[in-house]
């Protein structure tokens, strides 16, 4: 097992001169067999999540193949890879969101603090409180801003006004939204802007005090300003929460994450400290992808 020093990468990788991709460069052809062999060590010292030999099938089609990988505690891990490679699928395994899809089958294990979350007998409700999620498309409930943030507490049966007030304020502050909405907490959340919606969803996830926050392309529907705010927010939450973020944006992955995992066609191709993955990838495919040669 290899212990990885904590990198502090904030510098956009694309600033480097050799980054611009050659147009129409020959696409590397990868066979599954070639890819699944020879994975580098994908483990860390104190993982909060450890996936082992994870397979996932949508009906007959295999979406994830033999993924073994750790997510380091209280750090930001980015999942990158071309569209349809299984990033969302992988992410949704971690809080069992795939349960909502009938035809999904899994094999292998995912341990969150040692507990196998794929075990059908675990308490999924409890798991989802520990593993929060923010979606690509912000989906505030058609309720007031206050009730949106308080939702997770209310469904957990907490109705003490003081607790709710405190949590709503703390969560909104943590999500850097408090100053913008503190005077209109009782107004409908639907009146906020797109960027505010996404921060509201982050506040909503934080409110139930999860250990892990999953983010599935949280900025892909946002303008650059809002994106910057979310990225700043992720930087702030880092250290307190374990954040796993799926992104299509290489610069973003480089800016916000400590570790990066590259998936391709359901296979984990490379995992390592972000700096290493972006500047000195072990695999040829990774290099091709992050330099924009395919995907």
């Amino acid at each position: 097992m290899q212990s990885i020093p904590q990198p502090a990468i904030r510098k956009p990788f694309m600033d480097e001169p050799n980054a611009s991709p050659a147009p129409n460069a020959a696409r590397p052809v990868l066979t599954k067999a070639a890819r699944s062999a020879d994975q580098g060590p994908c483990t860390v010292a104190d993982p909060i999540v450890r996936a082992e030999h994870l397979y996932l099938y949508y009906g007959e089609s295999e979406a994830l193949t033999d993924i073994t990988m750790d997510f380091p505690r209280n750090q930001v891990t980015a999942l990158i890879g071309p569209s349809g490679c299984g990033k969302s699928t992988y992410l949704r395994c971690l809080n069992r969101m795939n349960d909502l899809i009938d035809a999904v089958r899994t094999a292998g294990s995912i341990r969150v603090d040692g507990q196998d979350v794929l075990d059908p007998s675990i308490d999924v409700i409890e798991l989802r409180r520990r593993v929060g999620m923010v979606f690509q498309k912000a989906t505030p409930f058609p309720k007031s801003i206050y009730e949106n943030v308080a939702y997770g507490l209310r469904i957990a049966g907490i109705s003490s006004r003081n607790t709710l007030d405190e949590t709503v304020e703390r969560s909104l502050k943590r999500a850097a939204l408090w100053d913008e909405v503190k005077d209109r907490l009782q107004e409908s959340a639907l009146g906020l802007s797109g960027g505010q919606h996404q921060r509201l969803c982050i506040a909503r996830a934080i409110a139930v005090n999860p250990e892990i926050i999953l983010m599935d392309e949280p900025c892909s529907a946002l303008d650059p300003r809002s994106t910057t705010r979310i990225e700043d927010l992720i930087a702030e939450l880092r250290g307190e929460y374990t954040i796993i973020i799926v992104t299509h944006n290489m610069q973003q992955a480089a800016r916000v994450s400590d570790h990066t995992a590259f998936l391709y066609e359901g296979v984990l191709v490379e995992f390592g400290p972000t700096k290493q993955v972006f500047t000195n990838p072990v695999k040829k495919e990774t290099e091709d992808y992050i330099t924009g040669r395919f995907g």
Binding site: M97, L100, F135, K137, T139, R154, I155
Partner: peptide, 24 residues
């Protein structure tokens, strides 16, 4: 997305139905 948003916060099916889906 609204259903998933609710489930992701630890809501049960019934809670999601009563608190989010039916009002909408």
């Amino acid at each position: 997305g609204l259903r998933e948003g609710s489930y992701a916060l630890g809501a049960t099916r019934f809670q999601t139905l009563v608190r989010v889906l039916l009002p909408m």
